[in-house]
Design a protein around this nucleic acid. Structure first.
Lengths: 336, 336
DNA sequence: CCGAATTTTGGCAGCGCTGCCAATCTGATT
DNA sequence: AATCAGATTGGCAGCGCTGCCAAAATTCGG
């Protein structure tokens, strides 16, 4: 362990011990091309006895120039703290693993400048493709992406022009449908509780669709309360408290997502407000936990794993620019 | 975008355009060694006009043999679905970024065999060090780790012998303290609700410490219910329901973690059981959401980000084998 | 204005592996 | 036994970059 002067075993060492050529070892190891059973056995033995570990750096460098292209993709997400993104990642990973791709992940913390830097960093791995989140990027990021000449998939959001491939659903439509649902249930004095929209642009688009529909129905948004910072149950609880203190007459509240909505739910419990009679609650994301609530939360389920999987799928495929809309499901629940 | 025959710009191209040698460009780009202001400007201009992106693959391959060693670390975690791991990652990332390290992440899905495969895969990136989760690994994984000769940090769990550096806290002690707390509060008929322990070994250690202390106090665990599969609020709710149906007399329940406990909380709400008078609830992890509950959950806060940060820190440092215990805090909350 | 000290600079040999291609071997066929 | 297609195999030139080292340019003293 932790041996400073550790002479790494190379493919040449294996070849020597196995008594075959380097390219033969390479072929056997990658199970590509042809070789005899006997050679394979010899190589396997040499590898085992030497404890050889291939050097992917060298392999990719050498292999990346021909037809092949490195079996590597870069993924940029804004956060790991929100379940959404791990779900996207695991969806992508399932496909990537199957196809023998490695992935390098970057987390931007919802910071566009950081995203640009990350894109630069990931590009320097010479990936076969890049998966990024959302449609909004800095000019610099866009320029790098274009200049790279590789396939780029933008995931989650379909509300806007994409660079290359876009996989997701319409956040605006989610907002509209959520509004339509509340309206259909007879709610009339509707409020909104959200978090910092400058960071989470998708939440902003949902809100835009939501208010749009409300306004079209002649029932504009009654009041709104925006919590500073990231979404969380605590922020949602506090924000709902403030909202109701200011505008007590609301009969329904739309939350920027389920984390916020859960906080709102807790506020109602603590304040003794009957749900949904006194106040209806509507969220977004369909977090697993919302199904375990005494009254399942009214929310919208998005195909997160599928989005990740399709994004990974499209990355490998050739083909023209495209927008893949995977839709979503409105879950009525019991809180609205 | 997605241009098949894209001739990549190389360092040589930059050198040519800037009218300097390759090594000079390399030095300027890495801001290492010495060069004149004028050269720097010329190089910068050439880089900009060509849109040059360094090839890290080549850089690492070339640079990894001397004293340096690649600026890369591998991280293996069992899951992204549980907040614990993103927290560890972001703690590690904060330090790694600062020190200019790249990280490659592997997710094992709590499968030891998969972990072994991942360790092999990560090792083939020739990282300067590896951060893995927990102390339990397959023999094969252990062998590879040892053979690699690189620094290895095992994080989270300190209950057992480590390979090299261990950073975390004692899960067994958490279990003991949790039991002591419930006992001190006067609870006597104590049950346990957990999830699949064969996958989450740390939960098993907490349970072991918990039952141990209970038994020593002459107040052995009354009953337990184990949900199949991963932890979740739904699993916790259902399992508590089953447990109480079988053993109605319990006055407190220890959960394998906060997700499960949250489910238990919801069950109590739905069933109209007063907390903590009729039933006390105790969790683990101090998820943010538990602080927003009408009655904050009694739980244990672990220094997750710090563990990740310290793990990353130690990776760079030389020094002997070591165990770093970062401790934890018991949060009394209002449910126990 | 000269030599020594110091700063800049460029050439080039790898890093470990893969792609390409020619050489060798195999067995079947005539 | 000679011929031939197909299976196996090894040599070697890079992939793009960095480390090393000697050469060139600059600066400093006196």
């Amino acid at each position: 362990m932790h041996d400073p002067d550790h002479r790494a075993v190379t493919l040449a060492d294996v070849a020597r011990l196995a008594g075959v050529g380097e390219s033969t070892v390479s072929r056997v190891l990658r199970n590509q091309g042809s070789f005899s059973k006997r050679t394979q056995a010899q190589v396997a033995e040499a590898v085992a006895s030497l404890g050889y570990v291939p050097n992917r750096l060298a392999g990719m460098l050498a292999g990346a120039h021909g037809t092949a292209g490195a079996k590597l993709v870069g993924i940029v997400i804004p956060s790991l703290g929100n379940v959404v993104f791990p779900d996207l990642l695991s969806g992508a990973a399932s496909v990537l693993d199957r196809d023998g791709f490695q992935s390098v992940i970057g987390v931007s913390d919802y910071d566009p400048a950081r995203e640009e830097a990350l894109i630069g960093a990931l590009l320097s791995w010479r990936p076969a493709g890049l998966i990024v989140t959302g449609l909004e990027h800095t000019d610099g990021a866009l320029a790098r992406l274009r200049a790279s000449g590789i396939r780029v998939v933008e995931m989650i959001d379909t509300d806007g022009p994409g660079l290359d491939i876009v996989v997701g659903f319409s956040n605006r439509a989610v907002g509209r449908d959520s509004a339509r649902h509340l309206l259909a249930r007879g709610y009339r004095r509707i409020g909104y509780v959200g978090h910092d929209v400058t960071r989470d642009l998708r939440a902003g688009k949902r809100l835009a669709g939501f208010t749009e529909t409300l306004t079209e129905a002649g029932m504009p948004l009654h009041d709104r309360e925006i919590a500073a910072g990231a979404s969380s149950a605590a922020a949602g609880r506090a924000a709902l408290d403030r909202l109701l203190a200011r505008t007590p007459g609301l009969d329904a509240v739309y939350f920027s997502n389920d984390d916020m909505a859960l906080g709102g739910y807790f506020h109602c419990l603590a304040a003794g407000l009957a749900i949904p009679d006194r106040l209806a609650l509507f969220g977004f994301n369909a977090l697993d936990i919302t199904a375990a609530m005494p009254q399942p939360l009214a929310t919208v389920r998005t195909p997160r794993r599928a989005i990740g999987a399709v994004a990974a799928e499209r990355l490998g495929a050739g083909g023209p620019r495209e927008v893949v809309d995977l839709g979503y499901d409105l879950i009525p629940g019991a809180t609205a």
